[in-house]
Structures are given as structure tokens and as C-alpha cells.
Nucleic acid binder design. Structure first.
Length: 576
RNA sequence: UGGCGCGUGGCUCAACGGUAGAGCACCUGACUCUGGAUCAGGGGGUUCCAGGUUCGAAUCCUGGCGCGCCAGCCA
């Protein structure tokens, strides 16, 4: 499914480019101050995904932050899987996550770590807490625990098992580990304060009984630590200095600190929270993304409409564009929603600079050049990228019959329409000037062919007399064109704030994908390698889809070009 | 009628007591063999509100208001 991708650009992502403006945000300020004050020689960060789904563009922000901070201050960033819940986690997700981070262009050396690597140590620390009288085994059910936790405005009440002896707690916890009890029979809880105004401090659960096979530790454990107990301690084991996480963990920080304080951990990490990424027209919730996939609203995690890294990759977004975007969105504590257009801007900027140009006609209409010799074919030299002279040129066949874009012709051109019309001369890009002499229609009145003449003196696209048509059209030789299916994409959701008014799934855009089955492409496109995105001149950026096969080409439209004509039309429509 | 956090142009951020700035978006013009790109210019902010401190407040204090998060044996 996932195409094999050429390695990302050689520039070391994460490391500041020599000419990059200094990136500044409150987290980098804190790190810089810690380094300047000599509290740490260099920062250690970590990216801690739970392997229960695919990475998405929101994770890219976190990845760029964690790896970026580490690189900029000469530190390091670990990849650590937060694999403490075996009922939701799978090896397939672990593999996909590693692949995606590599594709994005980040490198964590040999430091592929797992919270599960620390299960022994974590267990020993839990015992330490028991022996300090700071944790106890609670026999209450999940329901009972919920009922006695209190509410936002009322304190909770102590569990009847809260004052068990250290001996009894130690024995019971040991037996939980030995697998003597069924799921949910007992938990290990921290003994903090059932009346704490912060609910996370009301004797939070540290360990629960889960009889499930873990992707890495197999059946070795029948109890698993919760996020709260595993995360900070894992940070401490790894020597993480700045544990960067999203805002929803803010209220967990007092617990994070409490555990670090009461345990003989080897280092004292500090948790700092920042706002997660939100994007208009997009949902970045693993739960929802999983539903989109499992309910068949999209074809898979890597559907080109998905905001997953694999989806964006299949769509043709370059890793560099995603990295640039992550750098542009800023890091702050304000809950915010980024306009999707900023992502497009970042991607277009990279693609404009790097994508080779090709000719492709999505909605072909035939033109016949009446004064061009029948049977003649000539090869024209066409530049691969006007933004990059080193990209060279390629030969493109020209002949008497060509395909042009149907919408590049108007029998009755509206004002400000500069393209082909009866009697009007336009330039065929890198080829000749042609003038439309007549229109051939079928019985239904549909244009089936345009008869034209060309000016042989304009070969290459310039007129000796200096005259300049107002429009330049893309074209493909009818005798050489290869047919292809092209998939056009629009937002997966039809409103900028999906789900804001009721059911999220009711906001799915029914026109998020449009399939064009009879596109005509220049023949060089037939063997474009997967993972490469090119520009179809005047149309946008396109990339071969993995569904593509020899003789049955399939392309995805990555993005359109910026379209000011569409804007003019829209204005006209409003004014009319 | 709990706790924690956040409020600066349409969007995202900066300004860290000295009189509000950037990117994106938007508008205009130039240029152009992509109605793309590029270049030049422009509009747009009572810095949530109200008091207070100060020669001076987006920055400090007090009180409001609004928004977000927290009552999983998810992370």
C-alpha cells in the first residue's frame, strides 16, 4: 500500500539551517535559560507516541518541536513508545510510526525506546511507594472508585482499603503481578489526598490488572502501569530534561511532580505543556481517524484525504513542506486553530522550487492544426523547472493533432477571459502560436474539436515580430499522449470546524474525491517513480498513486496552483 | 458555588515597563511563455472589559467576563 519513498532531502532536519531565522518560543526560552544557567549541559527530549494508531500532522508539530529543540541546543531526542496499554496497541502501529518519523526526516540514532523496557524498574518503584506507605491496593470496583472520587465541586471519600498495612499491600500487589486476580479486581493507587481540588491527586490509579498479551513483553505481565505512573518515571530513567506534552496534561503535572519527588529516580525531568495543533476542515483525533478508516469513510490510514503522515505522503506532500509548516505554526499555550491554507502555502512553496514541470490535460478537447503538415512530428525542447535552471530540459513531441484543456476554450468568452476563442490567437507553451478558426460540435451542441492554424515563425513560443498572446496553454500531442486516471481531492470535511454543530460524520464532504478517468498525459509521466511529485503546468501538483500500474496510470492531485482566475470568477458571480 | 490554564489585526505568533510588529490571508501595481512564481506598495489592532500602580502599562496589581482542560483501571 505505502509506496517506497526516496530518502528525504539531505539537509539535516531539526538542526537549524545556517540561514534560518532564530526560532523563539516560550519553550526554547526555558531551555536556553536552563543551559545558560548551567542547570543542564544540553537538553534531552523525547517523542512519546502510543502505538495505537497512525501519526498525523499534529504529531508532526510535536516531532518537529522535540527533535528541533534537541538539535538546536546540541542535545538529543529519543523515540519512546508509550506502550502501557496492550489492549489497544499493535506492532503494526509501531512499525508505521517509525517509518513515518524517518520519512519526515528525523533521526533518533539507536534510541528506539519503550516504556515497556522499564516495566521491572517501574514495578520496583511501585513497591517502594507501597513500602513508604504512599500506595495501596484497592479492592473496589471501577464503578466504586468513580463514585467515591467526588465531583468537580465535592471532595471524594477514602477507600475502605486505604489504610491496609504495608505488609498486606505488598503481598496483594505481588499477587496482582502473579496474575492471581481477574481484570479489574484490584488496582494499586497512590495515597495522596481524596479531597484534593485537583482530581488527578485523589489517589490516582498507578497499576491495573490487564490479562493481555503485550506486543513486546508478551505474557510476562498481568499488571500494567498507567500513563501517569509510567511517563514521568520513564523520562527520569532516560535523563529527559524537558518533557514536552500537550495542554491536556497540564492538570497532571502536580502528579508528575509528586511521583518524581517521592521516588528515588535518577534525574528530575520537568514537564512543559504547549497547545496541540488544530487545523480548519480537519479532525486530528486518533479516535475519529480510526473510525474514518474502520467504517470505510476513507480507503485506509493512508488515504490521500487523511491528515495522517502516510496520507499526506500518498497525497504527494513533501516531508520538507510538512517540516516547514511545523516551524511556521508557532509554539504557545493558547488553544488555536491554524488555517489549512498555511499548510498548503508551505507545501506549495517547496513544490514550486523542487517539482519538475510536465504537461497533462485533465479534460481533453482535440485541436487540429489545419496548416500543420499531416504526419509530421517534431520534438521540442521544454524546460523542466523554470525556478531551477539545473533541472534541465526534456524533449516533448508536437504534432498536427493535440489535446488541450476544455476549459481553456470559450466559444463566447466572458470579459477578462484571455484564453482560446474563435478568431483569437494564444500560445501553446514552448511550442507555437495558434489561432482558432472554427468550432466543430456534435449533435448535442458539445464542442468536439477545434480547428486552428499555427504560425510556423513562432516555434519555441516567441514571435519574431514581438507580438504576445495574452494566454499560454498547456497541451499534449494526441498521437503520443498516455491516458490516465486522476484523482482530485478536496477537504474531507465540508466545514472549517467539523462537528461543531452536531454529528461530525454528517459534515463529511461528499465531494472530497473526484475521479477523472480520461486525462491525457505527456508520455514521460508513464514512468515517474512513486513518491515523486511533479507540477502539471497551470493545473497544480500531482503524484503517482500506488494503485498505478503500467498501462493503467493513476495520479493524485496534491494541490492546485494558486488560482486567481477562480477568484476573479467568484467575484464576478457575486457581483452578477 | 472546585482546580489549572489561556485571552494582541481575518488566522497564527512577537513585543518580557518606554509608546504595537512579523508570517499567512486580503487589496493595488509592476513583471512574466504557467491567470503560477517573483518584485513593489497598501488596508486592517480602543492589545477581552473595568479600576489601580507608574512620568509612562499589551506588559505589574485587583476585580470581572469569555474560552479550554480535568470527575478512564485511555494516553
Amino acid at each position: 500500500m505505502t509506496p517506497e519513498i526516496p530518502s528525504p532531502s539531505p539537509a539535516l532536519p531539526g538542526a537549524p539551517a545556517p540561514d534560518a531565522p532564530e526560532r523563539r518560543d516560550f519553550i526554547r526560552d526555558i531551555v536556553a535559560a536552563d543551559v545558560a544557567a548551567g542547570r543542564i549541559p544540553a537538553p534531552v527530549t523525547r517523542f512519546p507516541p502510543e502505538p495505537n494508531g497512525y501519526l498525523h500532522i499534529g504529531h508532526a508539530k510535536s516531532i518537529a518541536l522535540n527533535f528541533g529543540v534537541a538539535a538546536e541546543f546540541g542535545g538529543r531526542c529519543n523515540l519512546r513508545f508509550d506502550d502501557t496499554n496492550p489492549v489497544k496497541e499493535e506492532q503494526a502501529y509501531i512499525d508505521a510510526i517509525e517509518h513515518d518519523i524517518r520519512w519526515l526526516g528525523y533521526d533518533w540514532g539507536a534510541r528506539t525506546l519503550h516504556a515497556s523496557d522499564y516495566f521491572d524498574q517501574l514495578y520496583a518503584w511501585a513497591v517502594h511507594l507501597v513500602e513508604s506507605g504512599l500506595a495501596y491496593v484497592d479492592d473496589q470496583s471501577a464503578d466504586q472508585i468513580r463514585e467515591t472520587r467526588g465531583t468537580l465541586t465535592e471532595p471524594g471519600t477514602n477507600s475502605p482499603f486505604r489504610d491496609r498495612s504495608v505488609e498486606e499491600n505488598r503481598e496483594l500487589f505481588e499477587r496482582m503481578r502473579a496474575g492471581e486476580f481477574p481484570n479489574g479486581a484490584r488496582v494499586l493507587r497512590a495515597r495522596i489526598d481524596m479531597a484534593a481540588p485537583n482530581i488527578n491527586l485523589r489517589d490516582p490509579v498507578l497499576y491495573r490488572i490487564v490479562h493481555a498479551r503485550h506486543p513486546r513483553t508478551g505474557d510476562a505481565w498481568s499488571i500494567y502501569p498507567t500513563y501517569d505512573f509510567a511517563h514521568g518515571q520513564s523520562d527520569a530513567i532516560e535523563g529527559v530534561t524537558h518533557s514536552l506534552c500537550t495542554l491536556e496534561f497540564e492538570v497532571h503535572r502536580p502528579l508528575y511532580d509528586w511521583l518524581i519527588e517521592h521516588l528515588p529516580v535518577p534525574s528530575r525531568p520537568r514537564q512543559i505543556e504547549f497547545a496541540r495543533l488544530n487545523l480548519t476542515y480537519t479532525v486530528l483525533s486518533k479516535r475519529v481517524l480510526l473510525r474514518l478508516v474502520s467504517e470505510g469513510h476513507v480507503r485506509g490510514w493512508d488515504d490521500p484525504r487523511m491528515p495522517t503522515i502516510s496520507g499526506l505522503r500518498r497525497r504527494g506532500f513533501p516531508a520538507e513542506g510538512i517540516r516547514d509548516f511545523a516551524g511556521m505554526v508557532g509554539v504557545a499555550k493558547t488553544d488555536s486553530v491554524i488555517e489549512y491554507g498555511l499548510l498548503e502555502y508551505a507545501v506549495r512553496t517547496v513544490l514550486n522550487r523542487t517539482a519538475q514541470r510536465r504537461f497533462g490535460v485533465l479534460d481533453p478537447v482535440r485541436i487540429v492544426i489545419e496548416n500543420y503538415p499531416e504526419g509530421q512530428v517534431e520534438s521540442l525542447d521544454v524546460g523542466n523547472n523554470p525556478e531551477d535552471p539545473t533541472a534541465g530540459t526534456r524533449p516533448v513531441e508536437f504534432g498536427r493533432e493535440l489535446w488541450i484543456e476544455r476549459e481553456d476554450f470559450a466559444e463566447d468568452p466572458p470579459p477578462k477571459f484571455f484564453r482560446l476563442a474563435p478568431g483569437r490567437e494564444v500560445r501553446l507553451r514552448n511550442a507555437y502560436f495558434v489561432t482558432c478558426t472554427s468550432v466543430v460540435k456534435d449533435q448535442a451542441g458539445r464542442v468536439v474539436e477545434l480547428r486552428c492554424t499555427y504560425d510556423p515563425a513562432t516555434r519555441g513560443g516567441d514571435a519574431p515580430d514581438g507580438r504576445r498572446p495574452k494566454a499560454t496553454l498547456h497541451w499534449v500531442s494526441a498521437a503520443h499522449a498516455v491516458p490516465a486516471e486522476v484523482r482530485l481531492y478536496d477537504q474531507l470535511f465540508s466545514r472549517p470546524d467539523p462537528g461543531a454543530e452536531g454529528d461530525l460524520f454528517a459534515d463529511l464532504n461528499p465531494d472530497s474525491e473526484t475521479i477523472v478517468r480520461n486525462a491525457m498525459l505527456e508520455p514521460s509521466l508513464a514512468d515517474l517513480p512513486g513518491g515523486e511529485t511533479v507540477q502539471f503546468e497551470r493545473l497544480g501538483y500531482f503524484t503517482p498513486d500506488p494503485d498505478s500500474a503500467p498501462g493503467a496510470l493513476v495520479f493524485n492531485r496534491t494541490l492546485t496552483l494558486k488560482d486567481t482566475w477562480a477568484k476573479v470568477q467568484a467575484k464576478g458571480a457575486v457581483g452578477a
